[in-house]
């Protein structure tokens, strides 16, 4: 299953990429592949912006606007004017709600 086409914020910088392959290893959606020593996005529409690739790139060659793809979290963020947070607790947030 794929979500909306052409919306991901994923950006790769081929001149910073050293071809270590770590991003390909950590992507849970098979978005990235190695091509002639560089990481390339072969399936952008599968990207869910989890940020695993960016987190694990030691060379700052990947950027993505990491966040939760969760409508109730984003609506909560709009109402409170703060960061989108799921209603599912964690940290100092009271537990409750329906997300993840």
């Amino acid at each position: 299953m794929k979500y909306l086409a052409g919306v991901t914020s994923l950006k790769l910088s081929s001149h910073k990429c050293t071809g270590c392959g770590m991003c390909v290893e950590v992507c849970p959606r098979g978005v990235l592949e190695m091509d002639e020593g560089d990481a390339v996005a072969v399936d952008r529409d599968s990207c869910m912006e989890c940020g695993a690739c960016m987190n694990n790139c030691a060379f700052d060659a990947i950027w993505v606007d990491k966040g939760v793809g969760c409508a109730s979290a984003l609506i909560n963020g709009m109402i409170t004017g703060g960061e989108p947070v799921c209603g599912c607790g964690g940290g100092d947030k009271p537990a409750g709600g329906s997300c993840c």
Partner: peptide, 19 residues
């Protein structure tokens, strides 16, 4: 639309666009 939070394939940019 609320189910986007439970799936394993929706991203923030897409949900923002829907909203």
């Amino acid at each position: 639309l609320q189910f986007t939070g439970s799936t394993t394939f929706t991203g923030m940019s897409g949900v923002k666009r829907e909203l």
